[in-house]
Amino acid sequence: MTKTSSTSKKSQSVYAPSALHEESSSHTLAIVVNNEPGVLARIVGLFTGRGYNIDSLTVAETNHEENTSRITIVCSGTPAVIEQIKAQIKQVVSVKRVRDLTTFGPHIERELALVKVIGSGEKRIEALRIADVFRARPLDSTLESFVFEITGTTEKIDAFVALMKPLGLKDVSRTGVAAISRGLHSI
């Protein structure tokens, strides 16, 4: 966020900076939408149009009979911004339900990544060893390359990718976060 600067003294048609300096935090939102053309663009456009951040986004049809899709968005902002994001999403005509999993209670978040590592000799052996520690499965292999499949939290995948970097990391494809609440509750 831009902070106060002396330029605000110069032109009086400039707005005063916001008085709120709250801490930013990350929230995982589960959004059930009607599966219709343009619905993802509506949600994404809302974030770009209002200057909100998206850290991760996944979407797929989840209920064929009801024709609904589930969008999982990880976004960050101050508590006021997160409240606004949720309120704005709820206003979208195509949105059926919104739940903030972060405030709702215990929930599980998982991401899947496919990681290609190219190398030989010691590095190749080390990559395989670390993959084993992370329970990443080799899905494809040549004499000089591996493609690993790894699932876990965003942090776990970040850590794995970081470790693969010096060992010949070539390519990463990540799904983004899928999330669901624990226990009996559903959204």
């Binding site: 005063a16 606004q84 709820k90």
Partner: peptide, 22 residues
Amino acid sequence: RTDKFSPDSHKIHVDIDASSIN
């Protein structure tokens, strides 16, 4: 200027649009 807006009041806000509130 919002940080100096009606500093001493309790505010009631009726709006049909929940996203206009707060």
